[in-house]
């Protein structure tokens, strides 16, 4: 564990909690892509199956359980509890366009052709693009609530911090996982345009709106 990774995990946790609290306290999931949240629930489920087979540390297990629990709670709020506020007309990204090619890719490019390993690989690839329905929704409506942009920033920052963690681990331990690194790079690059808007607009007190 190094500082980059800890900061990355905290940023990830913060993102998840910001989103949960936003929906719970406003009693509304307006502007939130349920499809991205379904994809994240799928990411956590397929990645953390090792909870059943391998014990790494108390920290590791606790965080995994929290991520999975929060992610299902979010999906439940969007599709059940606050369904009436869910903006499905703007959440039109086709999930199968991501899930099917990624399932195929994880069968072809993985560390080991074993069920758990393939599911782990699938989750890494899927996570890298799972935010696309949300970004698509923001670009479709042309704006995002400030709290939603804080969520997106924390979520994007998490993988950027993990990239630094991987650089650290490469030099400190000689550890590198090419699948995670390439997918993490793709994931971080997808956020770059948003990071730019966040820094130039939201941090200056303006709402995130895209030029018409």
């Amino acid at each position: 564990m190094n500082l980059f990774r800890l900061a990355g995990d905290v940023s990830h946790l913060l993102a998840i909690i910001i989103l949960l609290l936003k929906i719970w306290r406003t009693r509304s999931c307006a502007g939130i892509s349920g499809k991205s949240q379904i994809l994240f629930a799928l990411v956590f489920t397929t990645r953390y199956l090792d909870l059943l087979t391998t014990f790494i540390s108390f920290y590791n297990t606790t965080m995994k359980v929290i991520y999975i629990g929060c992610s299902y709670a979010t999906v439940w709020m969007i599709y059940a509890k606050f369904k009436a506020t869910y903006d499905s007309n703007h959440d039109t990204f086709r999930m199968e366009f991501l899930v099917i090619p990624i399932a195929a890719l994880s069968l072809l490019v993985n560390h080991d052709f074993a069920p758990l390993e393939i599911l782990w690989t699938f989750s890494i690839y899927l996570e890298s693009v799972a935010i696309l329905p949300q970004l698509f929704m923001v670009s479709k409506t042309g704006e995002a609530e400030t709290i939603t942009s804080h969520y997106l920033f924390a979520l994007g920052l998490y993988r950027a911090l993990y990239l630094m963690n991987w650089i650290w681990r490469f030099f400190a331990e000689g550890f590198f996982d090419l699948i995670a690194i390439v997918a993490g790079l793709v994931q971080t690059i997808l956020y770059c345009d948003f990071f730019y808007l966040y820094i130039t607009k939201v941090l200056k007190g303006k709402k995130l709106s895209l030029p018409a």
């Binding site: 990774r5 990830h12 990645r47 080991d112 782990w120 963690n165």
Partner: peptide, 10 residues
């Protein structure tokens, strides 16, 4: 061959 990958990150 009984090697399984341990993914220690989240």
């Amino acid at each position: 061959r009984e090697f399984t990958f341990i993914h220690d990150e989240l």
